[in-house]
């Protein structure tokens, strides 16, 4: 591997570490400026000032912010996200418990968006001066700008009341499943329980669609534009001039070039999925990180908020670093 790639890797790693550090500071500050007091949240409105003070002292919340931060950081570098004030257990445990559920949901939604969005975008680009293009283009703008909250509730009603399918949660509590990977779709199969798999599959569809529909619309639009732009370029004329089979022109010449910006945008919009995830998990009672954050915010559980949001940030930053490195492999011009 040449030196360029290694130095790029290294530089990207350092950048990512700085981004994470920045995220830690911002999250810490933001969770402190949240109105409300965790002690009151747990002790109830009738708590005596002495009691509140005792609890605050126990959690270290009586120290000033700088001290609190240095304690937090010193534990963080050891990989310890601290303890939840209210639930009384370690945040690490909470996050590890909840992470697979979110991961499964987000990745499932992401894959749906890509496998529907990209081919559909290519198809529309091929028919770019037809009515079909107009219809799809306007639909996709609508789909992308539809609020997640509303979409989620509509899908909940449609699947639950309209189709009478199971909604809410990851799995019917009837089924007992031995956990291997934390991913319900995989675990049910590993248990050999087909009925449970179907149940899990039906339950993941509505929340995944809520996340996937806007992103799919975006991917359709973006793929269409990107493919169209490449189709206009001279080297496509050259490829046609060479009388190569149409599939070769499309995949080898057009799509490979169109994919470069598509990958970038897909990476960026991974973040949108993650934020959407908080709303979706709340609507569908999905026991993931998003719901954990929601619960923690209502309870002012600083440590949980910090921990969960930090994990989400790390995932996001890593995804973008991976995208950049992918980019480096796809496009020889960047190596210079």
């Amino acid at each position: 591997m040449d030196r360029n790639i290694i130095s790029y890797f290294f530089l990207r790693l350092i950048q990512s570490i700085f981004s994470i550090l920045g995220a830690v500071i911002i999250i810490f500050i933001l969770s402190r400026v949240l109105p409300g007091n965790p002690a009151i949240a747990i002790l109830g409105p009738k708590a005596t000032p002495e009691n509140i003070e005792r609890v605050m002292k126990e959690w270290g919340l009586d120290k000033n912010y700088l001290e609190q931060f240095s304690i937090y950081i010193s534990r963080l570098v050891q990989g310890d996200l601290g303890n939840s004030y209210i639930m009384g257990i370690s945040v690490n445990k909470l996050v590890i418990e909840r992470l697979p559920a979110s991961f499964e949901l987000v990745v499932f939604a992401f894959i749906i968006s890509l496998i529907i969005g990209i081919p559909l975008g290519i198809f529309i680009a091929k028919k770019h001066d037809s009515k079909l293009d107009l219809i799809f283009s306007s639909t996709s703008i609508l789909g992308f700008s539809f609020p997640t909250m509303l979409l989620g509730i509509l899908l909940l009603l449609f699947f639950g009341l309209g189709l009478h399918l199971p909604v809410g949660g990851r799995l019917d509590p009837r089924y007992t499943i031995k956990v291997y990977t934390g991913f319900m779709l995989i675990d049910t199969l590993l248990n050999g329980n087909i009925a449970a798999f179907i149940d899990a599959f039906l339950r993941i569809i509505p929340p995944a669609l809520t996340l996937a529909i806007p992103l799919t619309c975006l991917m359709v639009r973006f793929t269409r534009n990107s493919v169209l732009e490449v189709m206009m370029q001279d080297f496509v004329k050259t490829a046609k001039m060479k009388r190569l089979p149409e599939s070769i022109v499309m995949y080898r010449h057009i799509l490979r070039n169109a994919l470069v910006p598509i990958i970038t945008i897909a990476g960026l919009y991974f973040a949108v999925l993650v934020t959407g995830d908080i709303i979706v998990e709340t609507i569908f009672a999905w026991p993931g990180l998003g719901r954990l954050i929601w619960e923690a915010v209502t309870l002012r559980d600083y440590m949980v908020i910090q921990g969960a949001v930090l994990v989400v940030s790390i995932i996001y930053i890593s995804v973008n670093a991976i995208v950049d490195i992918l980019y480096f492999y796809i496009d020889p011009r960047i190596k210079g």
């Binding site: 001279d234 080297f235 010449h253």
Partner: peptide, 12 residues
Amino acid sequence: FQDALTSLNPLL
């Protein structure tokens, strides 16, 4: 074609 840079596929 006229412009040799844009007439060649940059990724191949």
